[in-house]
Write a protein that binds this DNA or RNA. Sequence first.
DNA 1: TTTGGCACTGATCAGACTGTCCAGTGAATT
DNA 2: AATTCACTGGACAGTCTGATCAGTGCCAAA
Lengths: 155, 155
Amino acid sequence: MDLDPLDARLLLLLTDEPRLGVLECSRRLGVARGTIQARMDRLSRRGVLTGFPPAVDLGAIGYGLTAFAVLEIAQGRRGEVARRLAAIDEVCEVHATTGQGDLLVRMVARSNADLQRVIDEVVDVEWVQRTSTSIALSTPVPPRVRPLLERAVST
Amino acid sequence: MDLDPLDARLLLLLTDEPRLGVLECSRRLGVARGTIQARMDRLSRRGVLTGFPPAVDLGAIGYGLTAFAVLEIAQGRRGEVARRLAAIDEVCEVHATTGQGDLLVRMVARSNADLQRVIDEVVDVEWVQRTSTSIALSTPVPPRVRPLLERAVST
DNA sequence: TTTGGCACTGATCAGACTGTCCAGTGAATT
DNA sequence: AATTCACTGGACAGTCTGATCAGTGCCAAA
């Protein structure tokens, strides 16, 4: 289940320069092209490498605000609530969690007024009982996988 | 600043099938290849399309657990704390927020015992005063941008 | 109305890359 | 000793890329 060092180096390389072709990867890593090809196939088959989705900067298209909401919901209504949250365009991510909250929601908006509207929409979802919202001021550590891959290189 | 419909359709197409080449995109969208090329250049230059990072499923390489922590930290120590959090490999994301918490941390781990260790590491960071941790049980809405793009298509 | 500027089309070009084979090597397993 | 497996290095045809260019339609400024 673990990554072998070559897999990890390949993923790191792709993390840094995602548009690299198979051939170029093989050159950079000093192995035959077929090897890279086989590794990538295997990583995909194992579900480790799930694709190369385009990274869209929401800030650059006007959605400059991010907020998080922790929701407490009525017993047994998680699926229900999740479905309704999913129907809100600005809701970009929902996790079900243990602890005092039941759902953690990440959402974006174009302006403070817009955020107000989005939050209201979220809070008004049926079965939502209590909410606590925070606005993201900055993101000191953007989503990353790198450190874990780097660790796997030296395995 | 907004996306025009063709841009949005292009991004949607790439979201669904990220490995598509420029030529294939042009065919699917029914425009000339040069147009797609120009659009992608422009989207990159505007910072909208920031790349095609490989999507690595952490679950598939053993990091099956995700947890969130809300940290309250000592006044004026945000940068300090963020830096130390960034040094923990398992910390995959940190946001500075308004509200009762100061930092929202996402982290992953290989097992409950491992999670314990990671949480301890996070909690033991200097200047962290109060923490509240939740384990993610499921992710009803995985990170997504699609709905916002779809909205831009019909603009 | 005329003139630019702009984006898009459709085409061409050489160069590079892809998927797919194959034979050969070395290492580990049986 | 035989088998399996991953890797190498080479080959092939087909395809895509980046670059460039002339031509067209549209909008806006003059």
